[in-house]
């Protein structure tokens, strides 16, 4: 069994009294696509900065590709790629010029490598297109190409597909899965559920703590142990208040034209009869499926 690509033990970072990252532990293996989900300020970026060797841990340790992130940070940075939403692509340069420029930063001067990287992300034929003429989805591919040009073994992606529709998102992820099949390990930070669903395992961060890390399926099963009910009723607002007070209901929320209820004990019939008794008209109650958002909201409580 090979060593984990990312190994994190009791990793902690304090800023004064504030504990940004609080004794987190996890491992990521070669070829895995792992998501790191959490709100702004939950410690996602601080974790990444420590893994990239840009910030010293206050406590604990981490290795990336076998190198100590603090003592051997140059070794780490030479072998990882980083794609950020805020990454600067030069709008007035063509795709080829942008990639050549950033390749140069990593010491890549081999023209074949540049063209191969463009081909990998599907930008062949658009070498001479100005970056400002690319749609969002394709700009993201160019950012990916820039992160890939030095052939890293580990890729950090920060909200790689925010703002694109499912078709573009899917095309992007198909590319990521291909890279993973080729042995590249991918670590994705995001606060979008749509993105987290694409990861093989997802870690949930909150207030500096890693609350859970597992496959989306296992997270849904282990965190949402009750049933999910979709309740269509009128008036909705009144239904919300009644179910909010109902014994055994763990969570109830408005979901557009219906209520979403999560409960271990309460079944369809009980919901139906209580609402009817309180003069709320029930159109139908359907069994729903837990989502990653349910998981997040349950853990964040």
């Amino acid at each position: 069994m090979s060593l984990p690509v990312i190994y994190v033990e009791n990793l902690t970072r304090r800023f004064g009294d504030f504990v940004a990252v609080d004794h987190i532990n996890f491992e990521v293996n070669e070829g895995e696509v792992v998501g790191y989900l959490g709100p702004n300020g939950s410690g996602k970026t601080t974790t990444i900065r420590m893994l990239l060797g840009l910030l010293a841990p206050s406590e604990g340790e981490a290795t990336v590709l076998g190198y100590d992130v603090h003592r051997q940070s140059e070794e780490v940075r030479a072998r990882v790629g980083y794609m950020s939403q805020k990454f600067a692509i030069y709008d007035d340069l063509t795709t080829l010029e942008n990639l050549t420029f950033y390749g140069g930063v990593y010491g890549i001067t081999d023209k074949t490598r540049i063209t191969q990287t463009l081909e990998l992300v599907g930008l062949t034929g658009h070498e001479h297109t100005l970056t400002k003429d690319l749609s969002t989805g394709w700009r993201q591919r160019l950012s990916l190409a820039i992160a890939l040009v030095h052939q890293p073994k580990l890729l950090f992606l920060d909200e790689p597909t925010s703002g694109v529709d499912p078709t573009a998102r899917r095309a992007f992820w198909d590319l990521i899965y291909e890279l993973a099949e080729g042995g590249v390990t991918v670590f994705v930070t995001t606060h979008y559920m749509d993105e987290a669903e694409y990861c093989e395992r997802v870690g949930v961060m909150r207030d500096g703590k890693l609350l859970a890390m597992d496959t989306p399926t296992n997270l849904k099963r282990s965190v949402i142990t009750g049933d999910v009910w979709e309740v269509f009723a009128h008036p909705l607002e009144q239904g919300l208040e009644i179910l909010h007070e109902m014994d055994g209901v763990e969570r109830v929320g408005l979901a557009g034209d219906h209520l979403r209820v999560i409960s271990q004990k309460v079944k369809k019939e009980a919901l139906q009869s209580l609402l009817s008794r309180k003069k709320v008209q029930v159109e139908k109650i359907e069994k729903g499926e837990p989502t990653l958002e349910d998981v997040f909201l349950a853990l964040a409580r």
Binding site: P39, N40, H191, M193, P235, G253, F296, L297
Partner: peptide
């Protein structure tokens, strides 16, 4: 750019507004 808990809160307000 808003986290899931805040989004949930925001949506609850919007739905309440029309309800």
């Amino acid at each position: 750019g808003v986290d899931p808990v805040t989004r949930q809160d925001f949506w609850q307000l919007v739905i309440k507004l029309v309800a």
